[in-house]
Write a protein that binds this DNA or RNA. Structure first.
Lengths: 155, 155
DNA sequence: CTCCGTGCAAAAGGTTTGCACTGGT
DNA sequence: ACCAGTGCAAACCTTTTGCACGGAG
């Protein structure tokens, strides 16, 4: 969803600050990628961002946009709304259930919790969607990666 | 998550019935793909399913496994747990928010609903995960596709 | 017997990477 | 001036597709 202009300004400044902290140059290309994403109404694919960015910087290369997007995600200024990894995953569990996803290693495990299975469905009159089911994706760090992080902290 | 043997049997019979209804042959390959998925502990990628299937049917081709998985999804016997489409999508909205996803056209729109933003996080002592956030993905049909379906019903 | 599914291999499509040159700091 | 970023193109990886053969109904 498009970010309001007021907030977008702050987001761009935050981006510049984060770059400085890491000693990364704030290039036109990077800034334009961020701006394109802030203005997007939907959840654009990398290619859609590329198209939008090229309206402003015609010569920009695909690789630069991909790299710019990854940087934003790494900095916490954007989210990748797809699943971790490059491949599709399949699941034979077709009942309502939820997922715990590790941000670090991309592991995904099931969560069966009946207390989470009776959320009210968003009203069709408000959303326009006819919704039939839902899944909650919890994000965080899995046990293995927690241990690994802890070890890294010690070393 | 692995499906209990008792339920797996029923799932296989349901698969056979669905094939018959559609006049599709129940081949060894198709059955093995389903079995591999029912036995999987995690959310395997297509390639992981392929590896598992080849333990039992060494000569099976990659394409057959991909086709088998798609058939299962189409029949409602499995879920693709990745996002619609082949590409990653990006989102500049980094606050807690949720998604409405159309099963038909793969459109994804944001849902901001404060009443959905205070779900209890699963307990770390139970899951082992240190969870920091969550997103709810609602699945269904978007307004455009509802209209399209309606028109198809009339014709 | 007829089709459809399979296997093989090639194509497709999205993303990543190596390298020389350019541009920010 | 230095070092990282960019552009270009090739590589990579997952998924899809076309076609001839063989097996299911």
């Amino acid at each position: 969803m498009a970010i309001p202009a007021s907030e977008a300004q702050g987001r761009i400044r935050r981006f510049e600050r984060l770059c400085q902290e890491r000693g990364l140059p704030v290039t036109v290309q990077r800034r334009v990628v961020l701006e394109a994403l802030l203005e997007a109404e939907d959840h654009p694919s990398a290619d859609q961002v590329l198209a939008k960015v090229r309206q402003r910087v015609p010569g920009i290369s695909q690789a630069t946009v991909y790299r710019g997007l990854d940087l934003l995600v790494e900095m916490g200024l954007a989210r990748k709304t797809c699943n971790p990894g490059r491949h599709c995953r399949y699941d034979a569990n077709i009942h309502r259930h939820h997922h715990l996803v590790c941000d670090r290693c991309e592991r995904m495990v099931d969560l069966e919790d009946p207390t989470l299975n009776d959320l009210p469905m968003p009203d069709r009159n408000l959303t326009g969607f006819h919704l039939v089911d839902y899944t909650i994706q919890f994000r965080g760090t899995c046990p293995d990666c927690l241990r690994a992080q802890h070890r890294e902290g010690i070393e």
